[in-house]
Simulated assay, not measured.
Amino acid sequence: MLTSELLDLNTELVEKARSLVPRLRERAKETEQFRRIPEATIKELKESGLFYILRSKRFGGYQTNMRTYTDIVTEISGGCGSTGWVVALCCLRELMISESFSEKTHQEIYDSSDDIVFAGVFEPRKIKVKKVEGGYIIEEGYWPFCSGSLHASWGYFGMPIVDEEGNIIDQGLITLPMSQVEIADDWHVMGLRGTGSNSINMKDVFIPEHRVVSFTDAINGKFQSTHFRDIPLYNTALFPALAMSIGVPGLGMAKAALELFMEKLPNRPAANLSTQYLSDAAITHHQAAEAALKIETAAMHFYQVADNLDSSAASGEYMSKFDRVKALANIGYAVQACKEAIDILVLATGSAYVGNGNPMQRIARDFAALYTHRTVSPITSKENFGRVLCGLTSSTKNI
């Protein structure tokens, strides 16, 4: 349950996010055209503190919770899917850094600059690592789809942990300044164009030992952040929180699609129907109601996960494997409900949808890019939950 202090902070931050929506919509064309978030938006996100909602108070953040995070990401995504996606992932990376790494690493990061934003990718497509004295050398590495890469100062990446003979002994997480990586200009896509999700290349980069942690330990709640153990936020289950960062922007997009449809509906003529206006047609009533109820269903699932993450973190007990698997099923189910709602609204919009300047098309394209992310796959997440319900183990190990 939120304290009155946290409720007041939630209200303040959500209102800040909501106030940005008109400007985000005005900049949507620019965001897509230049394949990055406009600097004016980045400046507003920093000045409003919305990039720092999951940062610890010790290092200048708001140290909120997943409920507040869900509210804020939903609002921003309703203004611009790409911006909501970047805020969702950059803030979540901050949580992951805060949970996973030691006090020494945190001090190194936050002492390095007053302007810290995180981006990162867990799974490398290609990597060659060598164990050396005091750490590791990434001789070469390639990570695609690093959302927010153009605005980040520190990175968070997955890396195999190897021994002196080169044998892989664990999966690791690393953090390093983005000045040590090469950002490719290769984000040419149909949806979420403004996220700047470019590929990252590394060559002969040294990663000191204290900036390498076990991903296996982290997903099971064995965090190196011993100095944060008394802060509930930093006991949040890592993998479900990551899945939330990918799924929740879809809720904002779906809400925006419904809002846009209802705004355009009055006085729209009805073609090939028995009514003069579309708003008087029974088919429109069914479509609007069905879309609205699916969006409401999605919201209930997302907020259930957020509240369960927060209550589990506050209890001092790390979320159980069963509850983590169920959380991913809830998220996948919510994403599917959002997709179905948007599909209904696209059909109800009619042929105007095909125009490149139509905002409904941008929303649908952005959501389509989100929907393909395997972390929030409705099919995989339901299968895994069903396996666990039937007494089997999940087929996805990283939960």
Score class of each variant (00 low, 15 high):
Trp187Glu: 03
Asp163Met: 03
Met202Pro: 12
Ile169Ser: 04
Val132Gly: 04
Tyr142Thr: 03
Val121Pro: 02
Cys146Ser: 06
Phe118Pro: 08
Phe122His: 14
Leu192Val: 01
His188Gly: 12
Ile207Tyr: 03
Asp204Ala: 07
Gln107Asp: 15
Ile183Arg: 05
Glu164His: 15
Gln171Thr: 14
Asn167Gly: 11
Pro124Val: 08
Ser197Trp: 10
Met159Trp: 00
Val132Ala: 09
Tyr110Asn: 05
Gly120Asn: 00
Gly135Ser: 10
Cys146Lys: 00
Pro177Gln: 02
Ile127Leu: 02
Ile168Glu: 13
Gly134Lys: 11
Gly134Ile: 08
Val117Ser: 05
Ile183Trp: 05
Ser149Lys: 11
Gly194Asn: 07
Glu108Leu: 15
Ile138Leu: 07
Asp114Arg: 01
Gly148Ser: 01
Ile207Ala: 00
Val129His: 07
Gly135Gln: 09
Gly172Val: 00
Phe122Trp: 14
Pro177Phe: 04
Ile207Thr: 05
Gly134Phe: 06
Ile183Tyr: 01
Tyr110Thr: 09
Pro144Lys: 02
Asn201Trp: 09
Ile174Glu: 10
His188Val: 13
Ala184Arg: 15
Cys146Glu: 04
Met202Cys: 14
Ile161Lys: 02
Asp170Pro: 06
Ile116Val: 10
Gly120Asp: 07
Asp111Glu: 12
Ile168Asp: 11
Glu164Val: 15
Gln107Trp: 15
Gly141Asn: 01
Glu182His: 14
Thr175Cys: 00
Thr105Tyr: 07
Glu165Met: 08
Lys128Asp: 15
Gly148His: 01
Glu103Gln: 13
Tyr110Trp: 10
Val189Cys: 00
Trp154His: 05
Ile183Asn: 06
Phe157Met: 08
Gly134Leu: 08
Gly194Glu: 06
Ser113Leu: 10
Asp114Phe: 09
Ile116Glu: 03
Gln171Phe: 13
Gly120Met: 02
Glu182Met: 13
Ser113Arg: 03
Ile169Asn: 10
Glu103Tyr: 11
Ile137Met: 14
Ser197Thr: 05
Val121Phe: 01
His106Ala: 01
Asp163Arg: 10
Gly120Val: 00
Asn167Gln: 13
Gly134Met: 10
Ala152Gly: 02
Gly148Lys: 05
Asp114Cys: 08
Gly191Leu: 02
Phe145Ile: 13
Glu103His: 11
Ala119Glu: 05
Ile161Ser: 06
Val132Arg: 04
Leu173Cys: 11
Tyr156Ala: 08
Asp163Asn: 09
Lys130Ala: 14
Leu173Glu: 09
Ser113Phe: 03
Ser112Met: 11
Asp163Ser: 08
Leu176Asp: 10
Pro144Asp: 03
Ser197Phe: 01
Ile137Phe: 14
Cys146Val: 04
Gly148Leu: 04
Ile174Ala: 06
Gly166Asn: 00
Glu108Tyr: 15
Asn201Glu: 12
Glu133Asn: 12
Gly194Tyr: 02
Lys130Ser: 14
Trp143Gly: 02
Ser113Glu: 06
Thr175Gln: 06
Ala152Ser: 09
Val117Tyr: 00
Ser149Phe: 11
Phe157His: 04
Ser199Gly: 12
Val121Gln: 09
Gly134Ala: 11
Asp163Pro: 04
Tyr136Thr: 07
Glu164Arg: 15
Pro177Asp: 09
Val205Asp: 04
Ile161Ala: 07
Ile138Glu: 07
Glu103Ser: 13
Pro144Glu: 06
Lys126Gly: 14
Thr175Lys: 01
Ile207Gln: 05
Glu108His: 14
Leu192Trp: 09
Lys126Gln: 15
Gly148Val: 05
Phe157Leu: 12
Tyr136His: 05
Asp170Glu: 08
Leu176Tyr: 09
Gly196Leu: 01
Pro208Lys: 10
Ile169Gln: 09
